[in-house]
Amino acid sequence: MFLIVGIFIIIGLGFNLLGAFSLYRFPDVYTRLHGATKCTTFGTLFTMFAVVAYSLGRLVSTGEARFAVFIIHGAVAALVLLITNATGAHAIARAAHRSGTLPARAVVDRLEEKEEAKGGTPR
């Protein structure tokens, strides 16, 4: 159990570190969203798996129902985090594009082309 929890925690911490680092590494909002959303979601999921594995070990060794409750609530928290993070990232990206932030170093931008074709406000 010690080994499994340790491996999960190390993977989770590594991805969290990369996610926080990507905020300083990338040039604009969209690429930062890639790093921040994916890496921190995955890292936090792995720390949650570590917590769940720890309670599973305690459940097997002590047999108290308290730890089963812990596992269920942890799984619900992981599911909520997975759904809300993806949707929040989508909302921020859409808002940033509508407020006029264009992707830096972009090779192609179909959404901007569509706005111009529709006769929208030039930015």
Binding site: L23, V29, R32, T40, A95, T101
Partner: peptide, 15 residues
């Protein structure tokens, strides 16, 4: 931009 700050806040909440 404000969007950058929103991204940072979102990351902080996840952590």
């Amino acid at each position: 931009t404000i969007a950058d700050r929103a991204v940072a806040l979102d990351t902080m909440n996840t952590l």
